[in-house]
């Protein structure tokens, strides 16, 4: 299934996301992904590929403002449709999803935050 596809070593990935966290305690992580899945799940990625700019040409992109842990959650959500929103990650997920216009996730996480405030 898609989770395995995402997690296995050799997964025919055609796009990687490099997560450079600004916080020193976290190291840089590289996620091997698939354009088809990303663009199907998010308008942001769809536009990113469609515009054929630098990221498309190089086959990779760099994200600076997101922690690797959160990005992993998000990517797993793209691949499987499932996400576990916890007190731990809720606010960051909300921030990420609203920035990148992932509507379903925005409403899920904002609901969670509202309920737990």
């Amino acid at each position: 299934d898609f989770q395995k596809l995402f997690e296995s070593e050799e997964n025919y990935s055609d796009f990687q996301i490099i997560c450079e966290s600004k916080e020193k305690e976290e190291e840089t992580r590289i996620f091997k992904c698939h354009k088809s899945i990303l663009s199907a799940r998010s308008d942001y990625f769809k536009s990113l590929f469609r515009s054929r700019m630098k990221e498309y040409q190089k086959g990779e992109m760099v994200l600076q403002e997101t922690s690797g842990k959160i990005l992993l959650n998000i990517l797993l959500y793209f691949y499987t449709g499932k996400i576990e929103i916890t007190l731990e990650n809720a606010v960051e997920i909300l921030l990420f999803s609203s920035k990148y216009l992932i509507e379903e996730l925005t409403s899920l996480s904002s609901k969670f935050v509202m309920e737990n405030c």
């Binding site: 536009s47 700019m53 990221e55 498309y56 992109m61 760099v62 920035k99």
Partner: peptide, 14 residues
């Protein structure tokens, strides 16, 4: 457009 960074531009407008 090919040398521009989409993410950077997106982030700027954001």
């Amino acid at each position: 457009a090919s040398t521009l960074s989409f993410e950077e531009l997106y982030r700027s407008s954001y």
